[in-house]
């Protein structure tokens, strides 16, 4: 039985929920069981946002991610809050242009991607989320590179098709990023 618990966290407005949705579709097109649960609260742009994604070979019980195997964090408060919750030997993906510190726990493996900065430099402001996801896919093989386009087509609604190309560019940028 294999079940992967993923938590994506950052500020509202960074596309945290969208990034989670992409991962769910990536799992779905591979025939996996999936669930997506956002944090909801009196939250707004600039406040905290997170969503838990579970990708599993077997039916999913609780959709709540309490001990993420994989954590994607896009602001400093999220790292403070969720690093202690990570499962042992978990993997953490950090937007290093917004988070200056490194991981405190030695059992965790960290990838540091200056996603917000890369997005700005490449005319992709606001798409740091998908740069992070690109790197995440590269390192975790949560889906094959060839599945990226299909998952993105599912995630970007038809009426927003104009955003497809820039999202794909951001995913590729992250996928090909090397420290």
């Amino acid at each position: 039985m294999s079940e992967t618990n993923i938590l994506v966290a950052g500020f509202g407005g960074q596309g945290i929920l969208f990034a989670g949705k992409f991962l769910v579709y990536a799992g779905l097109i591979n025939g996996k069981q999936v669930s997506w649960l956002p944090s909801y609260g009196p939250e707004m742009r600039g406040g905290t946002a997170s969503c838990g994604v579970i990708i599993s070979d077997t039916p999913i019980g609780s959709p709540i991610v309490t001990q993420p195997d994989m954590l994607i964090v896009m602001n400093a408060p999220s790292l403070e809050r969720y690093e202690p919750d990570c499962a042992r030997n978990g993997r953490v993906f950090i937007d290093s242009s917004l988070i200056t510190r490194e991981l405190g726990r030695s059992d965790l493996t960290g990838w540091y991607v200056p996603a917000a900065k890369m997005a700005d430099e490449n005319g992709l402001t606001g798409l740091a989320n998908m740069i992070m996801i690109g790197k995440f896919i590269k390192e975790t093989n949560i889906c094959a590179y060839n599945d990226i386009e299909a998952a993105l087509k599912k995630t970007v609604p038809e009426r927003r098709r104009a955003l497809y190309d820039s999202n794909l560019e951001a995913l590729n940028l992250g996928y090909n990023y090397r420290r």
Partner: peptide, 10 residues
Amino acid sequence: DGILGQMMEP
């Protein structure tokens, strides 16, 4: 409940 209302599944 709030979990079922907010969560997504296929």
